[in-house]
Design a binder for these strands. Structure first.
Length: 114
RNA sequence: UGAGCAGGAUAAGUGAUCGCUGCCGCUGCUCCGAAAGGACGCGGGAGAGGAAAGUCCGGGCUUCACAGGGCAGGAUACCAGAUAACGUCUGGCGGAGGCGACUCCAGAGACAGUGCAACAGAAAUAUACCGCCGGUUUCGGCCGGUAAGGGUGGAAGGGCAGUGUAAGAGACUACCGCCCGGGUGGUAACAUCCGGGGCACAUGUAAACCUUAUCCGAAGCAAGACCGAACAGAAAGCAUAAGGCGGCCCGUCUGCUUUCGGGUAGGUCGCUUGAGCCUGGCGGCGACGUCAGGACUAGAUAGAUGAUCACUCACGACAUAACCCGGCUUAUCGUCCUGCUCAUAGC
RNA sequence: GGCGACAUAGCCAAGUGGUAAGGCGUGGGUCUGCAAAACCCUGACUCGCCGGUUCAAAUCCGGCUGUCGCCU
């Protein structure tokens, strides 16, 4: 597997938005929905309101890196959509990471291993 | 030393680990496949900009349209050149600004025609309000001449001085301006000189319509080409066996295979070696051209540059390719280099 | 990535080079014992921003900024 699987189609995004549960904090919004697939997929959405192309790419890469590093800690078989809010453009990697883990805790999708 | 003008370069760096996207290689173990090959693994090497931006011009490329010409529509506009082409660039000319280095110009035509010019003003391209002069008078004025003066306006009938006249007026004269013709220099724009017209054309606006000259078919890689599940359709053949409707027959609906064809989801190509880049010589004032040598430098398809650690400093601006080039415009923390101008002081 | 449209008062908006219409709303007044309704009065000074053409620009011409739509 070269890359982790991701949500690509607009219809799949809409499915998660309508059928999933959502939590949010100051930096991020997270939608989670159980899927029929065995693995966990992620979709990242960054609006133009967040900033220009450079800012949006940087936010996307950081969220993708966070997901990659913490993938083993979460339950599998989920579709996750993360939306960045405009405040995310000023925050660094550490702040985004703590915000992500906070939302994972609210969703109760973290494994009980640790 | 201070103030400035013009041009150019650069766009934080180094090392380690994990991760991402192409490319190349493998005595390859594992999986798929008839094979070619692919997946996976390991190793190597590559991986955003000067504006990648805005999409404002120009071209390549692709599809569609097209005998040729004209009209319509659009663009450009001093001259000569450069270029694949351009609204770009270079060198000149004219005008404007600056002490200067130098900078800026949307810089054809308003004697081809039409339109518009609010308010003010008597009058806006045609006219007499006041004034001046002559005549007349019932002394209030009326008739005629007149653009020198007043006032209005962004703009008032070529300017200024003189002659002249009742008062005036290119009516006449000199200079300037304008128009016409010619000489000289220059490829040309243009500059300069001579002669003539006595002025008949004569406010501004062409980023108003327009005239003249030149150029332009339209759309854009989500262009387009190929393969192609599903599904709508057509034709041929087979079975008339079985099932539904029906009490039964007739009838009617449902079938299978092959071929054709449309082309959706999806996939492959287009997709990066190029009117390109670096160095040097030659031609040219220059833009640029030409010759020789050298290097290969992203190609993704929801879209690749991030995270962690260490060190240095000026503590890091604007900003992320998406078919590719040539320009323009706009954004931008700084650092460095070259040439030149002015002022002050010293030699 | 490509193509196109729009921006005028708090809101909806008209506007042809020459003083920027109108409606809703706000505020004030008349009316009423008090209100509602009705009637009268009321505001643009940066016409999104910066330049240019013109005597004069919301309007014409360039360049920016923002918003929206279409192509999948």
């Amino acid at each position: 597997m070269k890359r982790f699987p991701s949500i690509k189609k607009n219809s799949e995004f809409q499915k998660v938005y309508k059928g999933g549960t959502s939590y949010a904090n100051r930096l991020l919004v997270m939608y989670v929905r159980k899927s029929e697939r065995p693995d966990t997929r992620i979709g990242i959405s960054v609006s133009k309101k967040v900033g220009n192309s450079v800012v949006r790419h940087r936010v996307t890469r950081r969220i993708r890196e966070i997901f990659r590093l913490h993938r083993e800690e979460t339950n599998s078989g989920l579709d996750i959509v993360v939306t960045a809010r405009p405040a995310a453009k000023e925050s660094d990697f550490k702040k985004l990471e703590s915000a992500y883990l906070h939302l994972c805790g609210l969703h109760n999708i973290r494994k009980e291993s640790k």
